[in-house]
């Protein structure tokens, strides 16, 4: 079975092909488009998706050595994301399915991330605890099987990746925030400064807004707003440790309450080495398998959308072309369990 995946939920246009369960190609506009086709891709626009999606699909099919008629299932991100951006990929997929009589599968972007560990050779085993940490999302979930996902908690304000970006800005480090903080943190002492970890009503929820304010106040009080180069390593290391501790604290609580076989940490923040090490320690001490996808599957990508689409199709899920794009996750979207 050949599956085409299309992702246009936010900044990136991405197209991927999975053949008989094997990922053949995963093209991402910011990395692949301008190299191949020239021209500048704007950071954020529905028109950019519109201009990119067709040539990117053609190139993906070419690299997979397939023709469009050999594709059976077309999976596209339906939400959450920017409605104008989502509509480009979703409507494109619907059009192809309608005119070529293919099976259409709308995919929840978050579910794409949740199952992205399966793109790795060493896959998660059900049931697994999944931590989704990216620029826009921070969620903790139990994945029972292909279809049953139960949300334990999520962020009540800022996402973990956003906290990294904003902290980097406060410290005077440029974009991208996460990698810059990681770089400085590697030379610093993570125990130099104590920052607070929020205690919340739902013990599995996350909050990073208080940490942001604490960092801001610290920088104002100690340095009157401008952190000297010499103090950046300790500050970055302490901040990074606080984020990591916040994430692991809830994971440990969940592991004490739920019996799982694996842990999977997915999304852009999963690329952080300090956080990866923290999770390796937890997994090792509890004899659990840990799956962190490679960096190319941590950011937004169509490989995970194609994989999730394939999984839904194999589970005999049916969708009609009237399925609409949705901008946000509704309460109870991950309440099966």
């Amino acid at each position: 079975m050949n599956v085409l995946g299309i992702e246009t939920s936010c900044d990136e246009t991405s197209v991927a092909v999975i053949s008989n369960g094997q990922l053949k190609v995963n093209l991402i506009s910011s990395q692949d488009f301008h190299i191949k086709f020239g021209g500048v891709v704007p950071e954020l626009s529905s028109r950019a998706h519109l201009q990119t999606v067709t040539p990117l699909m053609k190139e993906a099919l070419h690299q997979a050595m397939l023709e469009l008629k050999e594709i059976e299932v077309i999976a596209a991100t339906a939400g959450p994301g920017l409605i104008g951006a989502l509509l480009v990929g979703l409507t494109f997929a619907k059009g192809l399915c309608y005119s070529l009589d293919k099976t259409f599968i709308p995919v929840n972007h978050i579910e794409g991330h949740i199952f992205s560990g399966f793109l790795m050779e060493d896959k998660p085993q059900y049931p697994y605890l999944c931590l989704v940490v990216s620029g826009g999302h921070s969620l903790l979930l139990i994945v029972e099987d292909d279809l049953r996902i139960k949300k334990l908690g999520g962020t009540i304000d800022d996402a973990a990746g956003e906290a990294f970006d904003k902290a980097a800005k406060m410290m005077g480090l440029g974009y991208p925030g996460g990698p810059n903080i990681q770089m400085y943190a590697e030379k610093g002492n993570p125990d130099a400064i104590k920052f607070p970890i929020a205690q919340l009503k739902n013990k599995y929820d996350y909050s990073f807004s208080g940490l942001k304010t604490a960092l801001l106040r610290f920088i104002q009080k100690e340095y009157e707003g401008k952190v000297p180069e010499s103090d950046l390593p300790d500050l970055a290391a302490s901040f990074q440790k606080t984020i990591s501790d916040t994430l692991t604290t809830n994971v440990i609580k969940a592991l004490n309450e739920y019996k799982v076989k694996s842990i999977s940490v997915v999304g852009g923040v999963a690329a952080n080495r300090y956080i990866q090490n923290a999770f390796h320690e937890i997994a090792e001490s509890r004899n659990l398998k840990l799956v962190i996808p490679d960096q190319q599957y941590c950011g937004d990508n169509a490989a995970m959308i194609a994989y999730r689409g394939m999984l839904l199709h194999l589970n005999k899920k049916k969708y009609n072309l009237g399925f609409n794009a949705f901008p946000s996750i509704s309460e109870g979207m991950f309440s099966d369990g």
């Binding site: 954020l44 990216s134 826009g136 962020t155 800022d158 901008p327 946000s328």
Partner: peptide, 15 residues
């Protein structure tokens, strides 16, 4: 509306 959070990444959240 209990689920409002930061739209910095998403640009816009709809509640």
């Amino acid at each position: 509306i209990p689920n409002a959070n930061s739209p910095s990444f998403a640009i816009v959240n709809e509640y």
